[in-house]
């Protein structure tokens, strides 16, 4: 039996009011993959990521993170992941360092053990001179970098990120991709990234899932998906063709 870092099997989720967000979604992610989840607005990407992050409960289906369910065994399952939300909302009256210490504290880790890695990431994101600033004083892009830093310092088994590069400057985007690639290659981290930046997904992700109306409509390596669509064009054109049916 194959080992998966993440297993989502036949997930269904309907919001109060009758909006069907997920309609039988099944995704399996193997260790060491950078899995790109793409789809039009309202396809169910954020709902999927929130279910993985333990923020929503599916109406039906199975979620397993390294074999643990975030519904039944919340703490043990969430120990394996780091989540970067779509909206960069943070504790505005904490400084950058305080916020990172907070996240490290919640994971029962020692600050001294991660401090060097924190310094490296803050420098890479050009945040070294901002580390004693309150988060309320930072721009949206900077807050996004802080959230990504918080996700990366704990070196989880699965990184779950919803539009992680939104608002980041090109230099930070480059550093982000380098760092995630390093973590995947050297530390065995797996990443699940939801994004509308199809160019980035095409070049950066090792496997892609296209989701539409709460269902997976295509999945595979980029070349496999292109083959499936019968064309050798960019992911953007293939995506449009698949989504439009």
């Amino acid at each position: 039996m194959e080992n998966y870092v993440l297993e989502l099997i036949d997930l269904r989720k309907t919001y109060p009011g009758g909006v069907k967000a997920l309609n039988g979604l099944t995704i399996r992610v193997k260790p060491g993959e950078i899995y790109g989840l793409i789809g039009p607005n309202g396809a169910g990407k954020t709902t999927t990521l929130k279910i993985i992050a333990g923020l929503l409960k599916p109406d039906h289906g199975v979620v397993r993170i390294c074999g643990k369910s975030p519904v039944k065994d919340r703490v043990e399952a969430l120990k394996n992941i780091s989540y970067v939300p779509e909206n960069p909302l943070v504790f505005k009256n904490l400084t950058v360092t305080e916020f990172l210490k907070f996240v490290v504290g919640l994971r029962s880790m020692k600050w001294e053990n991660v401090k060097d890695h924190v310094d490296y990431l803050l420098e890479g994101f050009n945040l070294t001179d901002k580390k004693n600033k309150l988060l309320i004083e930072l721009s949206r892009g900077m807050i996004q970098k802080v959230l990504v830093t918080a996700a990366l310092i704990v070196k989880p088994r699965l990184l779950v990120m919803d539009e992680p590069m939104a608002g980041m400057d090109p230099e930070a985007q480059y550093f982000f991709k380098q760092t995630v690639s390093d973590l995947v290659e050297k530390e065995g981290v797996t990443a699940l990234i939801s994004s509308h930046l199809l160019d980035m997904v095409e070049k950066f992700c090792t496997r892609v899932g296209i989701i539409s109306k709460g269902k997976l409509v295509a999945e595979g390596r980029i070349d496999e998906i292109k083959k499936m669509a019968g064309r050798e064009e960019s992911l953007e054109k293939v995506f449009l063709e698949i989504v439009r049916g």
Binding site: A53, G54, L55, R74, V75, E76, A77, L78, K79, I81, Y83, P85, N87, L89, V90, F91, K92, V103, L106, R107, L147, A150
Partner: peptide, 15 residues
């Protein structure tokens, strides 16, 4: 508050 919902409850914290 949304910032607590997103940043705290996605951590390995029991409710």
């Amino acid at each position: 508050p949304e910032e607590i919902y997103e940043t705290v409850l996605s951590q390995p914290v029991d409710l």
